[in-house]
Amino acid sequence: MTTLRHAATIAAKDLRSEFRTKESINSTLSFSVVILLLFSFAFDPSPDMIAEFGGGLLWMVFAFAGALIVNRSFARELPNDCIDVLVSSPASGAALFLGKAVAAFVLLFGIECVCLPVFGVFYNITWWRSIGGLLGVLALGTWALACAGTFFSALTVNLRLRELMLPMLLYPMLIPALLSVMMLTNTLLTGQAIPDDFTVWLRLLIGFNVMFTTLSVYLAETVLVR
């Protein structure tokens, strides 16, 4: 219970700090829109093409945006050695990790909710046909990104090439989750009939989240205490 209370405090602190400065929100949101725009220049998006890889396109944008958000998770604590103060506070490593992951999840999910209608307008998609399922899948995929990203952000926070190392470690590790969420989003986004392997991808995504969350919570203390 104490861990969850501490995690909520950390998450609230991170969100309050972000909403005051709007540093990550503004840059990530504009970056996402620019990437959506660039994709439309890279190929001529016909309805058939969008039905085939719209989900993949959308999650490429979210994956890039996610890296920007999670990169700041622990890096924002570096000035004035705030990270040392957080680590030596009564909050455990697990609480610290969970709080930061929840904050990253809220920020990223908010950005996704803004990008989704923009994507619908740019690529002419009636994306709200399965809105409930789509938001559920987006939440699962976003948690995978926030959880794994926050953990690797803690792992790489003190490295010389932090901005380069984080995506290099994160993306290969995230591929099972990204692959699943792209397949699921593609089906729900374009209103296709639910294919037979839908539950396989859903189980893979849930399994990834359960495994990554458990391991990250268990190992967070080891990574954070120096």
Partner: peptide
Amino acid sequence: LICWLVYFGYLMLRSAI
């Protein structure tokens, strides 16, 4: 290939610390 890339990342991480 993913497996190979993940372990290559392991070596990259080592070289950065």
